[in-house]
Design a protein around this nucleic acid. Sequence first.
DNA 1: CATTTATATATTAATATTCGGATATCTACA
DNA 2: TGTAGATATCCGAATATTAATATATAAATG
Lengths: 111, 111
Amino acid sequence: MIEPAQLFKCLSDDTRLHATLLIYLEGELCVCELMEALNDSQPKISRHLAQLRQCGILADARRGQWVFYSVEKNLPAWASEILASGSKASEKALATFQTNLKAMKNRPQCC
Amino acid sequence: MIEPAQLFKCLSDDTRLHATLLIYLEGELCVCELMEALNDSQPKISRHLAQLRQCGILADARRGQWVFYSVEKNLPAWASEILASGSKASEKALATFQTNLKAMKNRPQCC
DNA sequence: CATTTATATATTAATATTCGGATATCTACA
DNA sequence: TGTAGATATCCGAATATTAATATATAAATG
């Protein structure tokens, strides 16, 4: 089970914070979508997602070529509350990332 | 104004997390009370409190020999929500710290 | 004043984190 | 097979964080 300080540490880096919150809002995203939305390199995104998975915050599921990340279903209530509060706090940045997502060509889920 | 990732970084260390939440619950605590409650050294407690103050999470007020720390009044709503969720998550540890506090002899506020 | 108590800060050494670039793995499909 | 696309991991360098120890400041007290 995840400890409070561990969750906070995971969310203390902008790449991890924004990836987590965007996935929280969108339900499920793959690495290439996050690269596009956050405008970051593949190894950087992948490395941070691995950390979030290892801490039990995100779950991954491979479907074909893609690996989709979603928020771990069994997250404790307090952790979900923190994601909700964080989403409110990062509203503006998240809106930009969602705009980037919508502008993305050839998104995997469309196919 | 404090940024989400910055708040999370402040709360990602157990000393800072526990000090912040205990102050959040108790209203106001001085360094020597936190030393007793968290069972940590004076320089360690003081250094972490300074960091929390610099980030705008805590406010300090000297009264006589003692410096009392409290949660910054103008904290945004999302930040207060995170403290509330964190308190729930750390309920057990906080109960222990409160027990330590009650057992402390010569607490400054009593005088 | 001199001393004591409370708190803050500086220094140093150990450890941790982060990123970029290179490379490896895995899947789909010709 | 073999090639391409998507993702993961490894490595080294730069930077940041942390704790412990020592020292400094500030207020109370005799």
